[in-house]
Design a protein around this nucleic acid. Structure first.
Lengths: 224, 224
DNA sequence: GCTGAAATCAGCCACCTGGCCGATTTCTTC
DNA sequence: GAAGAAATCGGCCAGGTGGCTGATTTCAGC
């Protein structure tokens, strides 16, 4: 494996991004960009055609998003490893991507060195995560493995919101639209609307802005 | 990033292992083994003395095991990243190591290439996990829902807002509708709409909910 | 007195939002 | 197995919201 060059496929709907990564990676003697794709659907096809070692996968793409594309690529028994790239280290994306079978997750602001190393690492079969991602993963994980989980907190407090509703409330308090939340949680927008409505009724609020205010006042979310 | 060579400390009670890794890593032009330790206690000391970039840490060691040693090294605010190495990918070890603050976790049967890449990756600040480990971590973790985090965009300072606009922004962050604000400020609703629009444009936001979030994040308003 | 910024107001319009109705599926609980 | 809670999805619709254009008035600064 370490003999030949690492063959990479870049999947991103933005030309600038593809160009940048392409130049960057081709500058490495052991890495070669063998193809590009402008959406998830095309990425899946290209993987079949080109059998690359690594796929640099953007999440937000038309046709078929990076998560779904990753799922399909992994489902097919290709040897290709998927390294997901995104601008923001959104939790949901990370978990979804990794659960979809991605080998790694990096932020787009990674340096050339980090990117190249990342490609090599996943090509070698390891898993790679951005530090901020891992940190949250660990902290979250230790929360559920540690016994000090007394009841309440996410439950009885805020007017009997269900877990899912609380989850949605937090997203509202981050300024996401219904469509964005739907994409984030991978459900239909109508589902989100249902959750939002129930939240407003249960909390006795009028609109999502009041919900956001409530979330801050109730310390469900806190200023950075 | 890593302009100079990456300085590595090897902590393992077995001489053969230390030797092997040492030769292996020193063969890399950008990596230099600057010291060794035969137990956890010594590893902690050596880190203080040598300030290495990366510590290759075995788990089973006399005096102070790798987990505890990692905890101490991370507790001290050294810049050293800990890459834990072990023969078996035992769950307890993995979780404990990661919670102790390790940056990565690799199996000892990793190839020279994998090891070297691993060192480079953690030195660059990323986190590295063997794939089997990541998978378990994800599955374990995904059993529980989570409170995501997002906050994008570097906006211009809200100092660009006029007094009146700031006033309106505060009201938005109190959950008032345009009609209510109009009544409160004794102006027409259309006037409020104009203010709201300008606020959104100036701050690069999409809707009033994001404006409310912004107000809280910018401490323009603070939770009760 | 001219100028520019700020505050005020109006109308139009596409879109998102929230309310309301109903429906299915999966679980837990009894 | 019945009953209920939770999560999912769809459709319809009135109304609020935000974008865009244009206009008036006041006032500070030159």
């Amino acid at each position: 494996m370490s003999i030949g060059t690492i063959r990479v496929l870049i999947a991103d709907d933005q030309m600038m991004v593809r160009e940048g990564f392409s130049v960057l990676l081709n500058a490495m003697p052991d890495i070669e960009v063998v193809g590009e794709a402008v959406n998830g659907r095309q990425a899946v096809e290209r993987v079949r055609e080109l059998a690359p070692d690594v796929v640099l996968m953007d999440i937000r793409m038309p046709e078929l998003n990076g998560i779904e594309a990753t799922r399909e690529i992994v489902a097919a028994d290709t040897t290709a490893k998927v390294l997901v790239l995104t601008t923001f280290d959104l939790d949901e994306y990370v978990y979804q991507a990794l659960r979809a079978g991605a080998s790694g997750f990096l932020l787009k602001d990674a340096s050339a060195r980090q990117l190249a190393d990342g490609v090599r690492v996943v090509a070698a079969g390891e898993a790679l995560l951005a530090p901020s991602v891992t940190r949250r993963l660990i902290t979250e994980f230790s929360k559920l493995s540690d016994p000090p989980r007394l009841m309440s907190t996410a439950h009885a407090a805020y007017g009997d919101l269900t877990d899912r509703e609380t989850e949605v409330l937090v997203l509202i308090a981050q300024g996401l639209s219904n469509a964005e939340m739907a994409e984030r949680l991978v459900v239909a927008e109508s589902t989100i609307k249902t959750h939002v409505s129930r939240i407003l009724v249960k909390l006795g609020l009028r609109d999502r802005t009041q919900a956001a205010v409530f979330a801050y006042e109730a310390r469900l979310v806190t200023p950075k």
